[in-house]
Design a protein around this nucleic acid. Structure first.
Ligand SMILES: NC(=O)c1ccc[n+]([C@@H]2O[C@H](COP(=O)([O-])OP(=O)(O)OC[C@H]3O[C@@H](n4cnc5c(N)ncnc54)[C@H](O)[C@@H]3O)[C@@H](O)[C@H]2O)c1
Ligand SMILES: NC(=O)c1ccc[n+]([C@@H]2O[C@H](COP(=O)([O-])OP(=O)(O)OC[C@H]3O[C@@H](n4cnc5c(N)ncnc54)[C@H](O)[C@@H]3O)[C@@H](O)[C@H]2O)c1
Lengths: 249, 249
DNA sequence: AGGAGTTTGTGAACGTGAGAACAAAATCGA
DNA sequence: TCGATTTTGTTCTCACGTTCACAAACTCCT
């Protein structure tokens, strides 16, 4: 996967390197955020924005934002800032949103219904082309402007629409099998909502969205805050007083 | 927030440090995963597991898993492994799942309904105590075993149930206001599903779940794969011809 | 009791990412 | 034309996270 042409011609630096090595993962994860920010500014009729402006809107550090953008090329103007429309296009192109991505959703239960009805998909270059479920009672049901299809047609659907991205919203127990079937049918990117660890061959990307993990992370910090506040007295004794900090609110 | 007591007494190392500095964020994010893995093993009647076993099930490197666990203390036995039940309890305690966390969900539309119906909450120590929406047509509607409440009762609900964690599933435009209201009412942890950057005072944690960002990250890599494959020929030329820049679509 | 085998816990090397700081490049007013 | 001002692009440093590798600690068998 990682294309390792050892040392190409060393003519032009940054741009060439980018093509070879790609953009740092942390940056890739923030580009969609910048894209959204730029779209919002554009809709408000703002034509130009400085890295400081953008960073504030996106909730990040401006140095970080500038460095992120520099991986794409040199699209700003010193002393002025960035052209909103132009930069928006460049980011969209870099992410690959100048084309439409057909997506299939597998498992149309609670969550699958919500996803299928979600308009935020289409507005960002993703098109849900099919909904698939194993439950015979569900097949044929209309959700949004699509009908739920039988699981057996998965391969056909993926071929027909050239689907590269699949979304799994089945129970955890079924997730690996569904994943295997998607991969076998030619899908190479998977967004997984099921609480299961998926194993996939090289060349297939998986991202997971796990609600309960997010809540547990919040709970951990919540507990720490409670300890820091309520446990302050205990902590003070613990060591001969010293340290206390924190509000008692 | 970042506790900066310079150097407490240097008596006992690891455990003391952990209390002071807390567990690395990256580790915190994996603990719920280990917890789930351990629960699965426990249900299959497995009493003991090595770091290798656990790591495989959790889909991580075994050294990383051992280091992660070492932040909690020394709960394994060399030559044997970890006691599944015991370790499970220790992680649960560390995360704060030995207590129940009351949660309120604000915005009961497509997604809010799915979340409200989701059983995976309760099974992991989180209890949805209330559903809130501004839409008068929705108020009173029964979802799962709860009724949707009026937005005006937010403060009262949060006080009454001692809610520390709030979930925002409103449209993006309403998210900041809802966030402010939640914080004003005493919520100190927020899980945000809306596509908006929330600004909160110190001491409040926000985590976001953004489906469209996840899809865009997948799209980026998908595009790179396409370029690496289809663009191979072009890349060969490139060096003599220079640039080219893809898409003819 | 002792040695072979297993597995943890952690030190050390490496890689990636964040942020401060600043020179270079652009605008603008005089 | 030139200097003041703004803001980018990039370098440098530090912090954090990952992985390897191995001594220490434990079990089990003889
Ligand atoms: N509902 C939520 O808010 C929520 C939140 C976070 C995570 N999740 C996770 O998302 C997944 C789906 O949750 P849900 O609440 O929609 O569950 P659900 O039970 O309502 O829906 C699951 C659907 O998947 C279908 N299905 C089962 N096996 C299948 C298979 N092999 N192939 C295709 N379809 C299959 C079922 O027929 C059903 O329609 C679960 O793994 C859950 O843990 C849900
Ligand atoms: N549906 C999805 O699958 C999905 C996926 C990812 C993200 N999201 C995001 O989640 C959010 C909700 O999505 P949805 O599809 O459920 O939208 P929706 O329009 O179906 O539901 C929004 C709900 O919020 C309520 N609401 C509006 N303003 C409110 C306020 N100030 N206080 C309380 N409630 C308020 C509305 O009455 C409505 O019931 C959106 O921000 C969306 O971008 C949704």
């Amino acid at each position: 996967m990682t294309s390792s042409t050892p040392s190409r011609s060393r003519r032009n630096g940054a741009r060439e390197d980018r093509v070879e090595r790609g953009i740092p993962e942390a940056t890739v994860a923030r580009l969609p955020l910048y894209l959204r920010t730029l779209t919002a500014l554009s809709e408000r009729g703002i034509a130009t924005a400085s890295s400081e402006d953008l960073a504030t809107s996106a909730g990040v550090n401006s140095a970080k934002l500038r460095k992120d953008l520099s991986y794409l090329g040199s699209y700003g103007t010193r002393g002025v800032g960035y052209d909103v429309e132009y930069l928006r296009y460049q980011i969209a192109r870099e992410i690959g949103l100048t084309q439409d991505w057909p997506v299939v959703i597998v498992g149309i239960g609670n969550l699958g219904h919500a996803l299928a009805n979600y308009s935020g998909f289409a507005s960002r270059g993703f098109r849900v082309v099919s909904l698939v479920d194993t439950d015979p009672k569900r097949v044929g049901e209309t959700v949004g402007d699509l009908q739920i299809e039988a699981y057996a047609t998965l391969q056909q659907i993926i071929d027909e629409h050239r689907v590269a991205i699949g979304v799994i919203a089945t129970p955890a127990g079924a997730a690996q099998q569904v994943c295997d079937d998607l991969v076998a049918a030619g899908v190479t990117s998977i967004l997984n909502f099921a609480a299961a660890v998926l194993s996939v061959p090289d060349g297939v990307d998986v991202r997971k969205v796990d609600l309960s993990i997010e809540l547990q992370i919040l709970a951990y910090h919540e507990q720490r805050k409670a300890l820091a506040a309520g446990g302050a007295a205990a902590a003070a004794l613990e060591d001969g007083v010293e340290a206390l900090e924190v509000d008692t609110a």
